[in-house]
Design a protein around this nucleic acid. Sequence first.
DNA 1: GTAAAACTTTACGTTAACGTAAACTTCATG
DNA 2: CATGAAGTTTACGTTAACGTAAAGTTTTAC
Lengths: 151, 151
Amino acid sequence: MQNTRVSAVEAEFETSPERVRRTQDSFSIGDLSKEFDITTRSIRFYEDQGLILPERRGQTRIYTQKDRVRLKLILRGKRLGFTLAETKTLFDMYERDGSSVNQLQTMLRLIDDKKLALRQQLEDIKVVLHELTAVESGCRAELIEKTKENP
Amino acid sequence: MQNTRVSAVEAEFETSPERVRRTQDSFSIGDLSKEFDITTRSIRFYEDQGLILPERRGQTRIYTQKDRVRLKLILRGKRLGFTLAETKTLFDMYERDGSSVNQLQTMLRLIDDKKLALRQQLEDIKVVLHELTAVESGCRAELIEKTKENP
DNA sequence: GTAAAACTTTACGTTAACGTAAACTTCATG
DNA sequence: CATGAAGTTTACGTTAACGTAAAGTTTTAC
């Protein structure tokens, strides 16, 4: 009974069958597109890019809980500014290295890069906001001049 | 002798011939590409998009001070987050309305839009930075766990 | 006078993440 | 059994701002 506690990140990857029995365990592409409010085109695109690999019943795609979790992770990644390629890297890494120490380190590197880039962006935006305010002041002053000239 | 003072924005548009006599009054595409550290391809592209209209001596483009000033404005616009299309709108407006009250108002609207968008971006980035930090903490905690398990 | 440098036009390629359209099959339902 | 919903594949289109290559002309330098 060691390891009753499941880490947050792994909990999203490993689908403990017992805990989800009460909900579905397979989904159509429509189900998922509704649940996550994305188009079926997007879901198929993620498959094209090698991020998901649903089973097939004939032609039709059948998605498991694992696929569903992956979708969730893809979308979270997007919110965090990861490209699909970066997210795929993490997935591939997890495939090859279940224990995933490697993956965690890669994730940390990615996060660090993102944070750096975002901080830079933050600074840039602040600068531009100031510049914009300056230009704005200039414009206002000029407008007042013009309005004086032609009342 | 009224109007000795020239407004900042107009000063960039109107090239007072007397004030620039000591420098060149025509430039090659190479001159400008070096001065502004952009490729000649970019300069020709701006022409394609209708932002500049240099004279020609035969095939060769001859740029005047006015063109040079426009280039400077294009680049400033880019720094401020304006698209080429937006900058073109301002140019076109100036062409049709030299007095330019209209232009100033449009500029103010554009600036306002940009500021709003940038502030939104700023907020978004802050949120993501926090999320990233949270995920990072999770990863670190997990790494420590893993390292304990397999010393 | 010739070779290199600078200039020209034309036009396809790039990036990311899908949108959109066409043309088809499969499934459920009244 | 027809029809409409949901699914499928294929493949071109979108956006912004150029990059890059090819193939030609003109100018400058020695």
